[in-house]
């Protein structure tokens, strides 16, 4: 599903050049649950942004679903992104002005789905995430765990092939964190590929493979259990 070859990302300011990713290569197959770990500043989030088609690499090739997307325009990336990728963020990134229902519905709106179909799909996913009773609430009225469940619901609503999770439990206590990890694990069980950036060894336990980054380079790849393809 994903093939990265010599992915390099260099950030330049007027005086300083920082290499966030340095010739990183790896492959991820459909249905895998991969954790990316490493200390702060090692390039985890940069890698995730490139994998999530939010950013282009400075050098190297990135094949997503068989297409080389490393030089795609934002418009092309946006098209692929909304069809195929769901995002879960550490700080949830819900839109405060929209209700839970409307937040979850948003990706479907951008996909141009009809209103009635959207409603049906959102109801299903909210039920699946056990958050239906909060559908009319606004994000700030929910606990952190609930907010992250909404974020996960939003990530899966468009039935993406890939979910990218950036420290999904970073802002949660251990109980709520576990809840979210179980959700992701279940989704993986349903065949969705999950790539998760985390600092937490405990969360990494849920994955089948851990890619360790240090100073923008892969220093270690552990396969913990076989992917449930």
């Amino acid at each position: 599903m994903i093939k990265a070859q010599n992915l390099t990302k260099i950030f330049r300011t007027d005086e300083v050049e920082t290499t966030a990713l340095n010739a990183v290569s790896f492959e991820i197959r459909q249905g895998e649950f991969v954790a990316i770990m490493g200390p702060s500043g090692c390039g985890k989030s940069t890698l995730l942004n490139i994998l999530g088609l939010l950013d282009n690499p400075s050098k190297g090739e990135y094949h997503f679903l068989g297409n080389d997307v490393s030089k795609s325009t934002e418009r092309q990336r946006a098209g692929l992104r909304k069809q195929n990728i769901g995002f879960v963020f550490q700080n949830f990134n819900l839109i405060d002005e929209l209700t839970v229902f409307e937040n979850v519905e948003l990706p479907l709106i951008y996909l141009g789905m009809a209103s009635r179909d959207r409603k049906q799909r959102v109801d299903e996913v909210l039920a699946q995430m056990q958050i239906s009773h909060r559908a009319k609430h606004f994000p700030l009225q929910l606990s952190g765990g609930q907010q992250q469940r909404v974020a996960v619901a939003r990530a899966v609503i468009a039935k993406p092939a890939l979910i990218l999770a950036d420290e999904p439990t970073g802002n949660l206590d251990s109980v709520h964190g576990e809840e979210v990890m179980n959700l992701l694990s279940n989704l993986n069980g349903q065949g969705i590929t999950i790539i998760m950036v985390t600092h937490s060894q405990r969360d990494a336990e849920y994955s089948q493979r851990v890619i360790r980054l240090f100073d923008g380079q892969i220093i270690n790849e552990n396969i913990k259990k076989s992917a449930s393809v």
């Binding site: 999530g52 939010l54 418009r75 946006a78 992104r81 909304k82 839109i95 405060d96 990706p107 951008y110």
Partner: peptide, 16 residues
């Protein structure tokens, strides 16, 4: 800015 970012991540284009 956050709202714009999130919307873009979720598939909104500039015209939207």
């Amino acid at each position: 800015a956050k709202e714009v970012g999130v919307r873009k991540v979720l598939g909104a284009n500039r015209i939207n």
